[in-house]
Design a protein around this nucleic acid. Structure first.
Lengths: 238, 238
DNA sequence: TCCTAGTTACGTACAGCGTACGTAGTGCGC
DNA sequence: GCGCACTACGTACGCTGTACGTAACTAGGA
């Protein structure tokens, strides 16, 4: 008798190993790594319990000994890529340090384009998340504001990084395993947008559309947004 | 022979009705409304093609005449709730107007808690999205910055609203149709967080944790974040 | 006016999903 | 060394998105 949970559960609160019984053949880290490998290679939709189990070389239902629900597998995956954050020694320049953190988060998401889609469902208290939070707080040590405001800054910055990067990634992820290329998709979308704007129903939008010359530099837009957010918390600028 | 698309498609670019054939029994708006009704009542997972078709009173496969892929149904849903935005007459106070827009977006998401989960996958060019964008640009008319910077402000603000609200909603959505309450879930999570902090592995986090007294006022945190972002674009403050 | 091609409607079918449940074997703690 | 918690995993169920085939319908071109 296994006995399913009738009470809320955070997977991180359940110990990976309790004394009794045969030694487990796999670890959470190994399972997470397998799932991440599949998601990177085939997209998030390729991550099924069956598929992950096959990758590990075990029966499908054996996975459920380690991961009570699929949602928890997602939790493991997000935590696993969180380990890719470099927890560097703070330099004393909180702005530069936080910028670096943000750029790193963005880079991680570009490496694992499925992360943004998972973010809304995730608890946010996994070991690596906590370590990252602690690291950010260390970077913000020189900044003379209350701890509560610091965590608000971190949350805001992470939110901005996530939405911006999610948006930039969306097209790439959408065209994965489609019979057309990213450029084709973009062309079709831009043509549609142009046709809408041309109806005259959106005059101000049309003006903004005309004002821009050449393609948008997503990276520059992203960095400008970061700078603005940091400005908003910089005591020297207010 | 229907002939599936071998070329990228934006559902908004395909006309709702072409001359030939029997008159369609349903409209995009009606289908979207049905899907939204289901999502509101049973959560996003309740939205299946079969279920929506049943709600409309038609065969499952008939839906595919209107909605080529399920992803497009999501697109319709997000556009449908976008119609709930009140496109008020700009007052001339761009800060107040944008705050109002943001609060309204948040309210919409609270009414339809499944929206944040859909946001990453959505194209962002639906009719109501364009109308909302145009409305925001109208509100920002008094602000003396380039149009490009205005759209960046709008994007940043929307991003902040989305992530913050998604986070606040996450627990509610997670406990939907679970055998435990939101309070129980929160208690378990807080207990776990406390236990982790108590290990001493996260000293700064612990300090921040101790500093706060009483429960967090999510609404206040949200509003403070908005103010900061607006500050960052306010020419009078720089 | 009639013909026909494009639509609508929808039943059937298939591959794949998450996971409940039962059973067999293993090894630690008492 | 007994018992029990644990691991492993095959089977099965209800559900999903959707490809495909067929029948009814109607607007446009000849």
């Amino acid at each position: 008798m296994a006995g399913r949970a009738a009470v809320p559960e955070v997977i991180w609160a359940r110990p990976e190993r309790t004394g009794r019984g045969p030694k487990p053949a796999f670890t959470r880290a190994g399972i997470a790594a397998a799932a991440v490998r599949i998601a990177d290679a085939e997209g998030l939709d390729g991550v099924s319990m069956r598929h992950v189990a096959a990758e590990l070389g075990c029966g499908t239902m054996s996975l459920y000994n380690y991961v009570p629900r699929k949602e928890d597998l997602y939790e493991l995956m997000v935590d696993a890529v969180g380990a890719e954050h470099e927890m560097f020694e703070p330099t004393g320049d909180w702005r530069a340090d936080m910028l670096r953190n943000a750029e790193e988060t963005r880079a991680i998401m570009y490496r694992h384009t499925w992360v943004p889609r998972l973010m809304p469902g995730v608890h946010g208290f996994s070991p690596n998340t906590l370590r990252y939070l602690e690291h950010c707080l260390a970077c913000l040590e020189p900044l003379g504001i209350p701890a509560g405001t610091k965590t608000e800054l971190i949350a805001l910055l992470n939110g901005v990084v996530t939405t911006y990067t999610a948006n930039d990634i969306a097209t790439v992820e959408r065209t994965r395993s489609m019979p057309w290329s990213e450029e084709e998709e973009n062309a079709v979308r831009m043509a549609y947008l142009g046709s809408q704007v041309a109806t005259g129903a959106y005059p101000r939008l049309a003006a903004a559309f005309m004002e821009q010359s050449g393609p948008v530099d997503l990276e520059a837009v992203f960095r400008r947004a970061l700078e603005r957010v940091l400005d908003a918390y910089d005591p020297e600028l207010r």
